[in-house]
Design a binder for these strands. Sequence first.
DNA 1: TTGAAAGCGTTACCAG
DNA 2: CTGGTAACGCTTTCAA
Lengths: 336, 336
Amino acid sequence: MPVTMKDIARDLGVSVVTVSKVLRNHDDISEATRKRVLDRVKELNYRPNLAARGLVTGHTYLVGLVVPDLLHPFFAEVAKALSKALLKKGYYLIISSSEEDAELEAREIDQLLGRRLDALVIATSMATPGIFERLERQGPPLVLLDRSFPGLATNFVGVDDELAGAMATEHLVAIGCKRIAHLRGPDHSPGVGRLEGYRATLAKHGMKVLPGYVSATRASDVASRENGKTAMRELLALKPRPDGVFCFNDPTAMGAVDAILEAGLRVPQDIAVVGCGNLHYNDSLRVPLSSIDQNTQQIGERAARLTLALLEAKVPPKKKSIFVEPTLVVRASSKR
Amino acid sequence: MPVTMKDIARDLGVSVVTVSKVLRNHDDISEATRKRVLDRVKELNYRPNLAARGLVTGHTYLVGLVVPDLLHPFFAEVAKALSKALLKKGYYLIISSSEEDAELEAREIDQLLGRRLDALVIATSMATPGIFERLERQGPPLVLLDRSFPGLATNFVGVDDELAGAMATEHLVAIGCKRIAHLRGPDHSPGVGRLEGYRATLAKHGMKVLPGYVSATRASDVASRENGKTAMRELLALKPRPDGVFCFNDPTAMGAVDAILEAGLRVPQDIAVVGCGNLHYNDSLRVPLSSIDQNTQQIGERAARLTLALLEAKVPPKKKSIFVEPTLVVRASSKR
DNA sequence: TTGAAAGCGTTACCAG
DNA sequence: CTGGTAACGCTTTCAA
């Protein structure tokens, strides 16, 4: 059994209250007793029970983060930045992964609610906003991350996906591509946003989305490498064949490059490829991959700032959506 | 304020105890009351306060995991496997990252101890075992992960690093390398273990570790890419020059390949390279990288099994060390 | 400067 | 079947 305040109080012949006060630096304690208490605390290696404390104070200094996949560097990096920024203000981050599974995510959220966290940050795997409507009505302050729902009024932090799609497509246009295709992502907001950015940019330049130029298969976030390869093979069979591809994410783009090389074509001379996410190793690939950088760290920091603002507010502030600006990183796969 | 059992009890004119029993499926409650309670619980969206429950039951069903770096796929994958296996038994994993910083790690551990977790799993960034000796004496069940301390009796799960080093070196010998160098890792057990495996294998074949053939710089776990490049440049300046290199990890190996190609030499013809960790994208690199796979998933599962065993034991079982067997994956960087 | 009493939300124990 | 009482480890309030 761990040491409690009671043990210390008994040992020293003082009351629990006195011990409690010393530990929280109240100044209505004599130097003498303070020292006696502190010494005993050290000796016994005492640690306050944070759960008990939270029970009475009403806040836990715990913020929950739910992500679809910790193996995805994007989420790992957001977690890192978020954790660091929150820690500075004394808040501790609890991370859980839903493995892109809506049902598991619901269970995780339940757990976190049961622990009475002070706030919740969620990059959801859910297809519908139902759960979040309920959370907004009854639950701790909530910030949605990376994926949002049209029509749901909520706090949100993520990259501007439409801009990301537009920048990638704009770049392909700029290097002279005439027939630009898109290996699209899932039906969530990043997938749809990037697709919209692609569409809008083509339209702006008076270019058409040729039949089949938006992949039917939706690169899931896991195993998108294989998906990309398969989807690209289908694109290669089209006539006319595309001369530029914007891919939902980098693994998909890597798969696309695989398929293109496999068909005996060259990247970027025959087909230029741009991904999204800017993974760390893009530089060292067989064909170094151009990509849209999502400014991940900034996303984490802005999410932290927003969360802290919610935590410190007396009255619930107006819902706020923060869109971080992406950046284009050009490498060999689109250098002409 | 969240709904409590008291609210439900009052609404229904029953006692808190009755509500509590319904929620925990005690069978000494009439069907009628059970239904009334359950209905009200649904209506109000009630969730038991797990902290309060933990306070009285004495266990939290929480297991803490501390890793040096969540961005490292190895740890992310361990976390994933661990979490999945624990969840099956009703235990929930709290993940924190120490960013390879011993001081931060100490603070994280303190937090976790304050939360009275049921068990702790730690891949430590500490150079000394002091903290863990104390934890073994006073603290929840502890499992060390990936990194161990000679002389510290503790539960441990990790890959057999000496075997990893031996397998890599053995492979380089087998493909005909005569002068094998090692870009070594930090001073922790994996770094030292792999080095020992390398040394032992050379000795076994009557080969010498030539002067300067073990890099002085120790690939830190972060930014090891640049380190690898720098260290390899130094190796290239040696006479005679090595014709095979075993690198502590894959980023280091990627840096080594960079340096070799930059010097106008070929991989694997002039110098063969083997890494360790078997990162997912090793296949798609400019030079696909041979590597030692650590069987990460198995590490997570074994860690979970061991943790659960500790959790379920009445008396503290004897300390156990589990070494998972690594596997060699041969790719172009060492294919002759 | 100190501490007694009440309470946070829950469960264990035992009497009715 | 039901529920009163005590307890978990802590903080808050207020009186001494």
